[in-house]
Write a protein that binds this DNA or RNA. Structure first.
Lengths: 212, 212
DNA sequence: AACTGTGAAGACTTTCACAGCA
DNA sequence: TGCTGTGAAAGTCTTCACAGTT
């Protein structure tokens, strides 16, 4: 395994644990166990314990895990114990929806600026965030110390914008544009493709049908 | 392996291949090879060949793969050679953005109806799709033979709506609500969590920083 | 020479099963 | 008794490497 012996797949589940634990906290629960977590998230208890143990000794034999403590620990693991400045590039329907989404705050991401090329959008505010001209991208990324960008531009523009983002210092790109980005290796890219997700769902459904 | 010896991970990449092949077709290319595909999608050539070979003998030694033929074959694999009726439940910012997104058509998904509880939204049209009262859910799912649903309601309502969807006959749910659904096993659920994706990106970025 | 398809090896991930703590 | 953390085994997925086709 590559990094401190932590499988990539386990990292992917940490967000899931965190979301569930925050739910428990809202319900006033102070303690839980690998078995309870597993049941809710459709995993095995062994997997939950193994995943959590990759990052430290968070539980106590016989008692389980303390909700508050585990939340803090997992936030530390993900790096979301500190706040991250994020920008949104592309203010179409999807960009607008993301700018208005209030769920990022709770997860320590604050959207500090948006960008678009349409003169009619530049200067306006969406979800409390100012829309800038694309020309200002480099300046804002530098000045506001932006590390993460959400890319929601048309596929044809995606690689150009992504290259500019990375050159300006962005280190992570959440890519909603329906194309595979070709950027310098120092940047991390995470693709999100709703169409592809629907296709995979269709495949699973079709498979279940034939299995019958 | 569970299903005809096809790993889940390979299925996940089929959409990616398809998107790339359609790009090639638009560019007028008629043929490609595992090595070329791999370079563009950041995979290994062996992986591309293995993935495609799970589903059939699509290539020709020495020549590679024919773009058109491979597109048709992969659509058949995913089940998107036929059209799927889809509904969107929850017409908030995200639901609205998805209703307006024109990319589903090309992938054989047609959104036939939307649902919400807000009286001000019911009866209106968004992206050419009629918004119905949530009460009409069961009737529309049955009448229009809806197999797939996109769920974009608040977390608190998600399980209730999901249960109704499955009872009404829906077989797949693309879940944007930030909660893990508890539905009957006969239904397939695919979660999409943008917040979680951002968290994983943050983790990768933080890791790269410490590696330095 | 340029490729595919695929056994076999290797790498990674999950599950089992249990010693030991509360 | 109820639980964690973890070696060891089992299972899954990826890569290597090459026989065979065009």
């Amino acid at each position: 395994m590559k990094n401190g012996d932590v499988p990539e797949a386990a990292v992917g589940r940490i967000s899931l644990y965190l979301r569930h634990l925050e739910q428990l906290r809202r319900e006033g629960r102070q303690r839980t166990s690998s078995g309870r977590i597993a049941r809710r998230l459709h995993l095995s208890d062994a997997q939950v314990r193994r995943d959590l143990a990759y990052f430290g000794h968070f539980g106590r034999p016989g008692l389980g895990y303390e909700v508050d403590g585990l939340i803090d620990a997992l936030r530390g693991v993900l790096g979301t114990d500190k706040s991250w400045a994020v920008i949104v590039v592309g203010v179409g329907d999807l960009g607008r929806a993301l700018l208005r989404y209030r769920g990022f705050q709770r997860r320590s991401f604050r959207i500090v600026a948006a960008f678009d090329v349409a003169p009619g959008k530049i200067g306006r505010r969406v979800g409390g965030v100012r829309v800038h001209a694309l020309e200002d991208l480099e300046r804002v990324v530098t000045e506001q110390e932006v590390h993460l960008a959400i890319l929601t531009v048309p596929a044809a523009a995606a690689n150009d914008v992504a290259g500019r983002l990375v050159d300006a210092g962005a280190e992570g790109i959440l890519n909603f544009s329906p194309t595979t980005l070709q950027v310098a290796e120092r940047a991390a890219v995470k693709p999100v493709d709703v169409g592809a997700s629907l296709e995979q769902l269709a495949f699973q459904v079709a498979r279940k049908q034939t299995a019958r």
